[in-house]
């Protein structure tokens, strides 16, 4: 099956120049500039099937925003080919924008000074939404996102979380096949984040909307996305399932053991001989970490329980943060982590 998004060797090059220092430097810049090219996105290939909820992550400057902006038709690619739902986003911009919904957390799509409902009406006019469909969708969206009390307010009077809920609703009024979200929960509190996450899961499940999500909040990715694409320095360094990447060699599990008596630090350190590292956290509590491929969790648990009376024991999988940090390190060494298949 062919995907709804297909990118091949997509590249975006910016022309930039070295700015000289000081006033005199700026004057010299006017006359002569040392230009150089920056590859913000460097040969990305991607295939996304319809209905997927894809997490798109990477550090600042990795090329996330640039590639999202190419995907949404804002930027013209320098080279490579792309097709989204049968359209070329930049070339077929006007027809293509009808197929997609876009939410940029940093700025609103709504008119600042007029009531939210007026913005919605204008958008539905722009997107040619029939009145019956508009009414039905608005009813549905305002129920799930609890917009009823906000509709009469001008956008400038909304809190960040309220505004984001309105922006999400606005992006879905024309029932797009794809939804692009760039940092949709930036600056929101935990409750607001939760409700937006639930909402995204629901529309992905109920309407089969393909969702591309970029965020710095890795917990969000972990809760929402089955597949992640990790970018670094304009290249994709990982593309695959979240489960598999966590099983990548070199990642460590952590363990916390509460003993009934004094914690046997030296004994355990000798027993596992470098395959696990332990340290004392309190008199009765030991914390440690170990790599699953060197030491199975079962062995650790059995060994400890056989020898000591244990009050409590917890093993934690590597956190997504650790996974990402490791990916960047490996990526820096030039190897692309295989995650597909």
């Amino acid at each position: 099956m062919s995907g709804i998004i297909k990118l091949e060797e997509l590249t975006k090059t910016y022309r930039s120049f070295n700015r000289r220092e000081g006033v005199w430097g700026s004057v010299k810049d006017l006359l002569h500039r040392d230009y150089f090219d920056v590859k913000a996105v460097d040969g990305i290939s991607l295939d996304v099937p319809e209905g997927e909820l894809l997490g798109y992550i990477g550090p600042n400057g990795a090329g996330k925003s640039t590639s999202i902006k190419m995907l949404t038709g804002i930027l013209k690619p320098s080279s490579g080919s792309m097709q989204v739902n049968g359209y070329h986003p930049f070339r077929d911009r006007k027809a293509y924008t009808r197929q997609i919904g876009v939410v940029f957390g940093q700025r609103t799509q709504l008119w600042w000074d007029i009531a939210v409902i007026e913005s919605f009406r204008l958008l539905s006019k722009i997107y040619d939404v029939r009145q019956v469909d508009f009414d039905a969708r608005l009813k549905n969206l305002s129920e799930i996102l609890e917009l009823e009390a906000l509709l009469r307010l001008p956008v400038r009077k909304l809190s960040l979380g309220q505004r984001m809920r309105c922006d999400l609703a606005a992006s879905l009024l024309h029932n797009p096949k794809l939804l692009f979200l760039d940092e949709p929960t930036i600056g929101l509190d935990a409750v607001a984040k939760d409700s937006i996450r639930d909402f995204l899961r629901a529309i992905n499940r109920d309407f089969g909307t393909t969702i591309i999500l970029t965020t710095h909040d890795l917990k969000e990715i972990e809760e929402l996305c089955q597949r992640i694409v990790v970018l670094d320095k304009g290249k994709i360094i990982y593309d695959g399932s979240l489960v598999k990447v966590k099983a990548m060699p070199g990642l460590k599990r952590s363990i916390v053991i509460d003993f009934a008596g004094k914690a046997p630090l030296e004994e355990l350190s000798t027993l596992f001989q470098g395959r696990a590292q332990f340290s004392l956290q309190s008199e009765r509590r030991l914390v440690g970490e170990f790599a699953p491929e060197q030491l199975p969790a079962a062995e650790v648990v059995r060994t400890v329980l056989d020898r000591h009376e244990v009050a409590d024991l917890t093993i934690t999988e590597p956190s997504i943060e650790q996974v990402i940090v490791k990916l960047y390190r490996d990526g820096a060494n030039g190897s692309r982590v295989a995650g597909n298949g």
Partner: peptide, 13 residues
């Protein structure tokens, strides 16, 4: 300021 992003996201001239 980058407001032109929003303009490009709408199916209008």
């Amino acid at each position: 300021e980058g407001q032109f992003d929003r303009v490009l996201l709408r199916p209008l001239n």
